[in-house]
């Protein structure tokens, strides 16, 4: 049965490729959130390789040993109803594996949904990231600046992205820094990340959103705190204001390059959770003041 040969070869070559292979973006994290996820993935691959090994070994034994051949002609296989202990074994062991992975899942999910553990004492930099067909808008409410298709932030400082969409659902992903999160027109979602190294990281929309989807990329740059302050100052002094008309024309343009403005669209086109009367189905009965509160809760991501 040589069909398992190539399978083994492919799978184990992947296994050898895994550790420290920088061409696998997902397993080459540059921030604590991405590191947690990368570790989780590698752990799960190892566990799953164990499971595969058990199945493949049993499979090989069965096929080699019990195949029809000249020597066992006339052999009449026995009637077997099953075996309670064997069956209990292959119920119990998977349950243990699943339970273990469930604990890992809940822990790591909790970790990446919040500000990374070592950075809790710092005040996060808030950036609103909104998508429209087919671009990303980044608004810095505190700095009062806005960019299109690129985002800068300081290294080693927590950043809280607040995501929403002016069109189809998109998914915000900077694979080397954090997992992804949907940006939707109906509610604001939150994504926390920290970059540990300076540099440019590719970010993109992963959720299909129409014709221009393939090009819907942006660059995320983490820079030293001084460089960041200098950049903000530059933008404030040199870039033009983002007027409502200008913003509307931006929304209507399918593809634009990088743009920089010295004011944000948040004033005339606020994000959904703080504006629309309903945030999601669970909160739909709340009145407006509760709404603000629940937004604050989200800011700290205490769930």
């Amino acid at each position: 049965m040589n069909k398992k040969g190539p399978l083994y070869a492919i799978f184990f070559s992947l296994f050898l490729l895994l550790p420290g292979c920088s061409s696998l973006t997902v397993l080459n994290p540059q921030g604590p959130a991405a590191k947690t996820l990368s570790d989780t993935i590698i752990l799960s691959i190892l566990v799953m390789l164990g499971v595969l090994a058990v199945v493949y070994i049993l499979y090989t034994i069965m096929l080699v040993k019990y195949r029809a051949k000249k020597s066992n002609e006339g052999y009449i296989p026995p009637h077997e109803e099953g075996n309670i202990w064997l069956e209990a074994t292959w119920i119990a062991i998977p349950i243990i594996i699943v339970a273990f992975l469930s604990v890992v899942t809940v822990k790591t999910t909790h970790a990446v949904e919040n500000v990374p553990a070592d950075y809790k004492d710092q005040k996060p930099l808030v950036i609103y990231a909104s998508s429209s067909n087919w671009k990303w808008h980044f608004s810095y409410p505190e700095e009062g600046i806005e960019t299109v298709n690129y985002v800068n932030f300081p290294v080693n400082r927590p950043v809280e992205f607040r995501l929403y969409s002016f069109g189809p659902i998109s998914s915000f992903w900077i694979p080397q820094l954090a997992g992804q999160k949907y940006a939707m027109s109906d509610m604001t979602t939150y994504l926390n990340l920290v970059a540990n190294t300076q540099g440019d990281f590719l970010g993109r929309n992963t959720n299909f959103s129409g014709k221009g989807y393939a090009q819907m990329e942006f660059t995320a740059t983490s820079m030293s705190s001084d460089d960041y302050d200098k950049w903000v100052k530059d933008v404030k002094s040199t870039a033009s204001q983002l007027t409502e008309d200008k913003f509307k024309s931006l929304l209507a343009t399918a593809h634009v390059g990088r743009e920089t403005f010295s004011s944000t669209h948040l004033t005339f086109s606020p994000p959904p959770a703080e504006h629309s009367e309903h945030m999601d189905m669970d909160h739909s009965n709340m009145d407006h003041s509760n709404m603000e509160m629940s937004t604050d809760e989200h800011t700290h991501q205490s769930n």
Binding site: L37, I41, L101
Partner: peptide, 9 residues
């Protein structure tokens, strides 16, 4: 695994 899925989704 929800957390890992943030990377596979």
């Amino acid at each position: 695994m929800a957390s890992a899925d943030y990377m596979y989704h």
